[in-house]
């Protein structure tokens, strides 16, 4: 046996009823995040209940799309399906609204990546229905 048998995977997101508002907004290049009006906190990633209160009282709100780079890594051994992109950067981006989002980074290389650098959301068209978020240096726009 040469290679372990792996399940087929796809890097194209498949929205559910719960996450559809996020991907619908993404199609319009708007970043929306769940907001808990009881605790007055945003939370990321999409869930059916608030992790602060345990209540199922959440709404989607459009956010600024601004944040900063909390940390990053330069990927040299790629995830499945990303073989043609190496080396590529993945970041943990802290949005101004107080949540962190894992994202690929555009317009940033290992040489100019800096923890704390200001970033802004951009969108990459994966299919006719799916725009995927990415983050780029804020001064680039």
């Amino acid at each position: 046996m040469n290679r372990p048998i792996r399940p087929k995977t796809s890097s194209i997101p498949k929205p559910s009823a719960l996450t559809k508002p996020f991907w619908d907004a993404a199609k319009e290049k708007k970043l929306v995040i769940q907001y808990d009006p009881d605790s007055r906190c945003y939370q990321w990633w999409p869930r059916a209940l608030s992790v602060k209160t345990g209540k199922m009282n959440l709404e989607w709100r459009e956010v600024s799309g601004n944040g900063n780079l909390y940390s990053y890594t330069v990927t040299h051994v790629p995830a499945l399906g990303f073989e043609d992109k190496v080396p590529y950067l993945v970041g943990l981006v802290e949005l101004d609204e107080g949540v962190r989002i894992i994202s690929n980074l555009s317009g940033i290389t290992e040489d100019n990546a800096k923890i704390g650098m200001p970033l802004r959301v951009t969108w990459e068209k994966l299919t006719d229905d799916i725009n995927l978020f990415s983050f780029a240096p804020r001064n680039a726009e």
Binding site: A79, K85, V90, I102
Partner: peptide, 13 residues
């Protein structure tokens, strides 16, 4: 969250 919000970013596990 994995298939929708983690794997599409290319993060290598």
């Amino acid at each position: 969250y994995r298939s929708e919000f983690f794997e599409p970013t290319g993060i290598q596990g």
